[in-house]
Structure formats: C-alpha cells, structure tokens
C-alpha cells in the first residue's frame, strides 16, 4: 500500500485536496476509483449505471426521514411505544422501505433523566437508512476518540450543556446495531402540527449532540 501513497496529501483537516489543484489534476484516489469502476464495467461485473443509480439512491436518504419518524413518535404514543420496542416494523409501517439485510436499528429515548449520545469508535457506523451519509465530524478521529471519554465536553462544543442531574449514556455502535436518538419534544410545541414538528428535528439531535430545536429559534431560520 505504501508505494501507492498519493502525490497530494490531504490538508490538515483530513478532508479535501487543495481545490485549485484538484480541478486541474485528477486526484490520486479519484483516479483509482474511476479506474476500478471502468474495469468492473468492462469485465461485465457491474453495469454501467450501477454506481450512479446507487449514489442517487443514497442521496435520497436524508435526516428528513429520521425527523418524520421522530415527529410521529412525539404525536402518537402508540407509534412511539412500537418504535422503541420494534423499530424496524414501526418504521416500515410509516412507509419506509428498510432492506431486510440492513443493520438493525434501535431507537433510544431521551428523557428528563437520561440523555444519549451515539458514536462509533472503531469506524463510522450510522443509521444511514434514516439519516443519510454521516457528517464529516461524526467520522473524525477527534469525535471517535473523545465522545466516549469526554461526552459532556464534546456536547459543549456543539453548544449543549447537559445538566448534572441527567444521566448521560454514550452508545458505541461497535457491532450490528445502528442507533437513533429520539430527542425530547421541545417545550411550547403542544399546539404544533406534525408537519411543523418535523422541522424542529435536526440531524444532530438524532445523534444526540444537541436537543431538538425550540420553536422560537427555528422561526428565525
């Protein structure tokens, strides 16, 4: 592997190549991936449209999916009960297609007493089916290192102060389970319709680093 070290190294943030150069030159890894894809197509191992179609399908997954699930759980206690005990069935009942071979989802509920924070210290396991591709920070070495040992410090960087009265539970998704946090329904939303509640449920609130938006702050956005 060492002899294949790219000519251009990543910048210090660990992502992206120098932009101007990247436009003029095909990046080392971009070239390798394009080469592999063309060879696989030439050999008839994959079809010409397979990668594009898969990328489109992955693009179609987004945190809005997770937000709809959360908002429904806020307004429908029966659904919430099923979501917490049998999440795959509950989510399929909402009309989502979850492949039978996808990793099993578990939904964990934040309450006045217990908050949850999700991390994958070994890799980047993430509930893609409901949140799409994981954000850069979730995959970063810093988050993977610190979330387990300094969860309150990490959350503070996201602007979240967890009360000392609250038990903070970090979930390290090391195996076959993907976790989604069911954030607490913000105060002052009792009159809101489900469609409007969806807008309060952010990606980060379903990973657990922040609470759901309060209606006051979302009015500005």
């Amino acid at each position: 592997m060492t002899e294949k070290t790219p000519h251009q190294k990543s910048d210090s943030t660990g992502h992206g190549r120098p932009d101007a150069e990247a436009r003029e030159q095909l990046g080392y890894f971009a070239g390798r991936v394009m080469a592999m894809e063309s060879l696989l197509i030439e050999k008839g191992i994959i079809q010409g449209s397979d990668v594009q179609r898969m990328a489109d399908e992955i693009d179609s997954q987004s945190p809005t999916d997770g937000a709809r699930v959360v908002a429904r759980a806020w307004v429908d206690p029966d659904f919430k009960a099923r979501l917490l005990t049998d999440p795959m069935t509950a989510i399929r009942d909402l009309g989502y297609e979850l492949a039978s071979n996808m990793p099993r989802l578990e939904v964990v509920e934040n309450t006045e007493q217990v908050n949850h924070l999700i991390v994958c210290t070994l890799c980047s396991c993430y509930p893609r089916a409901l949140l799409g591709r994981p954000p850069q920070w979730y995959k970063s070495l810093a988050y993977r290192a610190r979330a387990v040992v300094d969860p309150r410090g990490v959350m503070k960087e996201f602007g979240t102060e967890v009360s000392e009265e609250v038990e903070l539970r970090v979930l390290d998704s090391t195996a076959d389970i993907r976790f989604l946090v069911l954030p607490q329904r913000p105060k002052g939303t009792e009159e809101m319709r489900e469609d409007d509640l969806v807008k309060l449920v952010t990606r980060d609130s379903m990973i657990g680093v922040t609470p759901a938006r309060s209606p006051a702050s979302s009015a500005v956005l």
Partner: peptide
C-alpha cells in the same frame, strides 16, 4: 449472540470528568 453491555463511566476511565451516574454502553459479542 450480541448484547448491549452497560458500564459506569467512572470505573472505565482513570480520570472521568463527567457525572457519577454517566454510563457507556457498548455492543459486545
């Protein structure tokens, strides 16, 4: 077989700075 196992943060780390009730849950075969 896979389990979710719960640990007290205070016993896992030598110098945990959080709160005494904090937990770390890890899925372990």
């Amino acid at each position: 077989p896979l389990y979710r196992v719960r640990f007290d943060q205070g016993t896992v780390w030598r110098d945990y700075q959080g709160c005494p009730n904090d937990k770390i849950c890890v899925d372990i075969y």
